[in-house]
């Protein structure tokens, strides 16, 4: 697969704050990436750097093999939908879509129109009079209908209810299958999107904490529950990232995959297993990092 994004040792400093700290990663053509992490972890800054909307303090970025800054050839292939996008005061919904149509060579106008109707967006309504959810819908429509080879959604669903978010995920999947392209989804609603993702980047305090395939990440942790002493016996020598005691019971979240041998041993001890969701795993890992514990990289 072709690498379309290369980020090498990129940093972004704001006065005394390192928003992005020597980050390196690559994105491959045709995959859906999840950029996950807590608010303020540096996700948005990384995406702004990728799209040359912010300028790195250090390091190198390549999009489609070229530096993106002031590079029309490269930027024309990218669509970056961000939560904070501003529109001119006098613009109506129709104006925003018409302008977007001019800027994206792969724009599908009939698809955009179908989406507009699905989200019940009044064409003649001024954008500044839209509700938060409707404003998000404008971004979603532009992001999907642009069919840009690299499409980035940064928390695109603010103000949308669960039904509308589900609609967005379904549309994204359906359109991605028809028109494969590289998608980056930045979100903290990890459970909602985890099945859509092929690859996960977890950002924590300006750094990349995890850069893994979603499927292998899912198998990298499990929870084991039972009487405290038995759980401790079982978990000896394992990487326990979380302990939740309840009276004499203990649930331990363990890093590592569960082999048949361990499963057998746990059954002998009378312990029970539970899966650990992607969200749970990431929450635990980022929490440990923030608490300054020695959580190792998975």
């Amino acid at each position: 697969m072709r690498t379309i994004v290369e980020v090498r040792e990129v940093s972004k400093r704001y006065k005394d704050n390192m928003a992005v700290d020597r980050v390196s990663f690559t994105l491959e053509e045709g995959k859906i990436y999840g950029m996950l992490g807590r608010n303020g972890a540096g996700k948005t800054t990384i995406m702004q750097l990728l799209t040359a909307q912010a300028i790195p303090s250090d390091g190198e970025i390549r999009l489609f093999g070229e530096a993106p800054y002031e590079n029309a050839r490269v930027l024309g292939q990218v669509c970056f939908i961000k939560e904070s996008q501003k529109y001119p005061d006098n613009f109506k919904v129709a104006d925003a879509l018409a302008v977007a149509a001019m800027f994206f060579p792969n724009w599908d106008a009939s698809y955009a129109e179908a989406l507009r109707q699905q989200y019940n967006l009044p064409e003649r309504r001024q954008i500044k009079k839209l509700s938060r959810g409707m404003l998000s819908a404008v971004g979603i429509i532009i992001g999907l209908a642009s069919r840009a080879p690299l499409t980035i959604f940064d928390e695109p669903y603010l103000g949308l209810d669960a039904v509308a978010r589900r609609m967005f995920y379904d549309q994204l999947m359906a359109d991605y299958i028809e028109h494969p392209r590289t998608v980056v989804l930045s979100t903290h609603l990890i459970d909602e999107v985890s099945r859509l993702l092929e690859h996960v980047l977890v950002i924590d305090r300006g750094r990349i904490l995890i850069n893994e395939e979603a499927e292998s990440l899912r198998q990298q942790a499990f929870a084991v529950a039972g009487p405290m002493n038995k759980v401790e016996t079982f978990a000896q020598g394992m990487k326990v990232i979380q302990r939740d005691p309840l009276g004499a019971l203990l649930t331990a979240t363990v890093l590592g995959s569960l082999g048949p041998e361990q499963r057998h041993r746990a059954e002998e001890l009378g312990l029970e297993f539970a899966p650990v969701s992607l969200q749970e795993l990431i929450v635990q890992l980022t929490k440990n990092q923030s608490e300054g514990k020695a959580a190792e990289r998975v």
Binding site: M173, I177, R195, L196
Partner: peptide
């Protein structure tokens, strides 16, 4: 794989795997 992906709302790469 695309039919599986669309039906289960999962990533096609996962279905392909």
């Amino acid at each position: 794989t695309n039919q599986f992906a669309a039906y289960y709302k999962i990533n096609p790469a996962t279905a392909a795997k």
